[in-house]
Design a protein around this nucleic acid. Structure first.
Lengths: 296, 296
DNA sequence: ATCATCCAATAGAAAATCTATCGCATGACC
DNA sequence: GGTCATGCGATAGATTTTCTATTGGATGAT
């Protein structure tokens, strides 16, 4: 069996060769391969030099396979088809993975990034369990979770910091234009405050206005941060939220930072998973993706 | 046919994978591949990540194929065997090509460069017909020639300039040290002149000494330039030769230029081959090699 | 406890691959 | 004949991939 395989020619060169034989045109082959014509020319030149024989005859404006090239590519193509088929056969049914997150995390961070995840991991079918209730790994069949808090999150669980919680005040640019920037006491008092379940406004106001917190014109309360954020986007008032949840909205101009003050919380967002996951490879893959997406 | 090949996994990774499955040991696989264990580990890790599945179970001091890995490698191995066999089938018997050259060209230029030619074209068995007689393409079964002269070289022949003939005077450094640099008339007259069949000395002396050519102490005559060159290396006197024939000897310090004068000859060295060669690809390859070697 | 074995991980080096650009040789068109 | 389009060739430099040397962790044997 070992005797069947000698030193192989450049496999990348062979891959390029097979594509070129289908197009008989370096430019078109380059397009299929997603590289430049020069790269294709280089690979073919290298392969011809390595094999010591001419695979193509070059004519002005056209390319012809030599007899050598023609007979060779038949087997090379078969080999690549074999690899392709074997690899396709390998792929199992999409794997179901359940991730438990808060509704705000789901709507403001995870879901906007799902396209990226799906592109990278097409065989992992990610089920998102978005709930304010802390899901149970066993009874809820959760494979991993994003938790807000401080480790440890429980016995038999691994936790990895995803991102720090930094709370900032945000508002709609249109509202700011209408009421003026709320950095001064008198401007600020014109704004309705949008509250969520965290109730961070008192602490942040104390930081932002050391000479005495202003009184809000109005207070609107939501049970979820994401709802407060949506209301802020709609111009209903100012919301407090983690910087990570509004990075897309700030980038797109739907929201802007209305105060420079940042409130550091001693709880953060962690990726949490069991020490013995049911699907170790997939859990690892999701964890890796989460880390990368958060550091971007 | 095109539909048979999707985006292929890392071919290098697959190559490493196939080797590892035979050894079930990264270190041994690394030895076969001529890389380090770390490189093997990296490739396998990459492949497992790319495929999203585990190909090996790692145990202390040993490695096991997973069922997935076992079923996959069967087809991967077959594919590589196919490539290997197709590539072996591709290599024909070494091709005999006859090249006709002068003895001096053979000994002073071609033969010292043959190692390079053989490395690049292992399947071309180059026969060197070194003779002062002008060989005949048909009767002598010559495939190509290096000719000294000016085109045309005959009907049905292609000629391509190989290099210009620039004649210079050379001598042994030891002889020069002994007799003094021969740029002055009185020094020059101490030197024996080594003549070949070309008889270029009168012309060159006229150029080098416009106020009257000096008289040589002695004249030694050879029928071939290469013999004159060898005699010069041996310290027998000064020889005239094309710069190309002594570039190696000058580089190695066996000879040096003793006069700055260069005699331009209106004949040069050409690669000559029939318009319809018996082995077009090989003739083209040798021509290309000659051109490249000459321009170096 | 020490040593050997074997895979894992990583920063940095080396090699391979690719890009952008220019060049050459047509062939088509005006 | 001149200009433009097409297509491969060559190359310096940029980028990516692969590899190396090293350290580390987990056994298993003595």
């Amino acid at each position: 069996m070992t005797e069947g395989i000698r030193r192989l020619p450049s496999l990348n060169g062979l891959r390029v060769f097979e594509v070129v034989t289908r197009h008989l045109n370096f430019r078109l082959a380059a397009e299929e391969l997603g590289v430049t014509q020069g790269a294709v020319a280089q690979q073919i030149r290298g392969l011809e030099a390595e094999l010591g024989m001419k695979l193509f005859d070059r004519f002005p404006r056209t390319l012809a396979l030599t007899e050598t090239g023609r007979s060779y590519v038949t087997n090379i193509r078969r080999a690549f088809e074999l690899i392709s088929e074997a690899t396709e056969t390998l792929k199992p049914e999409p794997l179901h993975l359940t991730i438990s997150v808060t509704p705000t995390f789901a709507s403001k961070w995870l879901i906007p990034r799902l396209t990226d995840f799906t592109a990278i991991h097409p065989n992992i079918d990610l089920r998102i369990l978005a709930s304010d209730r802390i899901a149970n790994f066993q009874t809820d069949a959760v494979d991993l979770a994003v938790r807000y808090g401080r480790p440890p999150f429980g016995a038999g669980l691994n936790a990895e910091l995803l991102f720090d919680d930094v709370i900032v005040a945000v508002g709609s640019p249109l509202l700011v234009e209408k009421l003026g920037l709320p950095v001064q006491n008198d401007n600020f008092t014109r704004y309705p405050l949008l509250h969520d379940a965290h109730d961070f406004w008192p602490q942040l106001l104390e930081l932002a206005f050391p000479n005495g917190p202003p009184t809000a014109a109005k207070n609107i309360r939501f049970n979820q941060t994401s709802l407060a954020i949506e209301a802020a986007i709609a111009g209903q008032g100012l919301a407090l939220t983690s910087t990570f949840f509004v990075e897309d909205d700030i980038a797109s101009g739907r929201l802007l930072r209305v105060l420079p003050t940042e409130l550091m919380i001693d709880k953060d967002f962690y990726v949490v998973s069991p020490r013995k996951p049911r699907h170790p490879a997939s859990v690892t893959a999701v964890r890796a993706w989460l880390s990368k997406a958060a550091n971007r």
